[in-house]
């Protein structure tokens, strides 16, 4: 449990524990600053006001990052979150159009997401042999399919009354409400994963599921809770997404699952479980968001942006590994 960061910059654990300055998170912070300077140089429109105005759509995706990080820590994966967002957004739009007050609409959105997450959790904990990927793949098809059925021909619904949702998209000065909610939830999720018994059980299960089981952790209960939370967060994402889109359609939330996984992985959370810290995931999410906004402002081909993200993703993992390997070889040579 000593080397928690997915990217151990150094294999030397004593040095690693020295602190923040030799951690992957520190590298990410530097990278974040560098990306911002870079974006400022390439685009004169890269101002705080513009960035914050462009941000809400990306920020709502961050609600998926937090629980996805937990799921990856467990050694599982959930690719149904995008579809859950689609279903929750659809249901809350219909609820709003049926005349429910905004509070009830938000609750309905959250509950829809929660129900989807609980179904995933239920299947996965009853049939523990099943890999999460295949179960969430089928529920992904099913959730989006149900949304398609609800939406009917036309495939899109718009809000009749946007006042409630517009209120959600409000701002305090330059900052949208969403920004504060993301920060608060980010802190809560980070603290829970780092400082509570529940958080430690995530790491324990991810590192070695049977060892965790025999040390008394209720593995399946933890998995069920985490998948349920994921569903609820997808519902929250859906509600805020609706406040920027004023409606929902069959492509809502397409690809969000991959975005969330990429943010987490880039932030140092191991995709095989048990390693990484959520703080890294949050910083890396902001790096990716700022990069996308900056490159968008110079109208770069989105395919090139994808290629850059792909290279970043692989090299972020590859570079520290290679440096470690080189170091090990040198040590071996020195010993000889």
């Amino acid at each position: 449990m000593a080397g928690r960061s997915g990217r151990t910059i150094s294999t030397d654990r004593k040095r690693y524990t020295k602190g923040f300055f030799s951690s992957w998170e520190f590298v990410l912070v530097i990278l974040f600053v560098a990306i911002n300077i870079f974006c400022k140089i390439i685009s004169q429109n890269y101002t705080a006001a513009n960035v914050l105005r462009e941000m809400p759509k990306y920020l709502s995706e961050m609600f998926l990052l937090f629980p996805m990080a937990y799921i990856l820590l467990l050694g599982d994966i959930d690719i149904s979150v995008g579809a859950t967002v689609c279903l929750s957004a659809t249901v809350s739009c219909f609820a709003s159009n049926a005349g429910f007050p905004i509070g009830a609409v938000v609750l309905i959105g959250l509950l829809t997401g929660l129900a989807c997450g609980m179904l995933n959790g239920l299947i996965l904990t009853v049939f523990t042999e099943l890999p999460a990927m295949i179960v969430t793949l089928s529920t992904m098809i099913i959730y989006r399919g149900i949304a398609e059925i609800i939406l009917g021909s036309g495939g899109s619904v718009s809000l009749n009354d946007v006042s409630g949702f517009s209120a959600l998209a409000g701002m305090v000065g330059l900052f949208p409400y969403l920004f504060f909610l993301v920060l608060i939830l980010g802190v809560v999720f980070t603290i829970v994963s780092a400082k509570t018994p529940f958080g430690r059980s995530l790491y324990a299960i991810g590192s070695n599921r049977s060892a965790a089981f025999y040390s008394g952790i209720k593995v399946q209960r933890v998995r069920f809770i985490v998948f349920s939370i994921t569903g609820a967060m997808a519902g929250l994402c859906a509600v805020f997404l609706t406040s920027t889109l004023f409606g929902a359609n069959t492509t809502t939330g397409n690809g969000f699952e991959m975005d969330a996984i990429a943010m987490a992985v880039f932030g140092g959370i191991s995709a095989v479980g048990g390693k990484g810290r959520l703080a890294g995931g949050i910083i890396s999410a902001f790096i990716i968001i700022c990069l996308r906004i900056g490159l968008g402002e110079i109208n770069m081909n989105p395919q090139v942006i994808l290629i850059i993200l792909g290279i970043l993703l692989i090299s972020a993992v590859l570079a520290p590994n290679i440096s470690t390997k080189i170091k090990e070889k040198k040590q071996v040579l020195a010993r000889k």
């Binding site: 991959m258 990429a262 995709a271 395919q303 994808l306 993703l313 692989i314």
Partner: peptide
């Protein structure tokens, strides 16, 4: 030493691009 899902995900973006 890159986890397969990460490498594949990077590849997914790069090759599609």
């Amino acid at each position: 030493g890159v986890a397969s899902i990460i490498a594949a995900m990077g590849g997914m973006y790069i090759f599609r691009g």
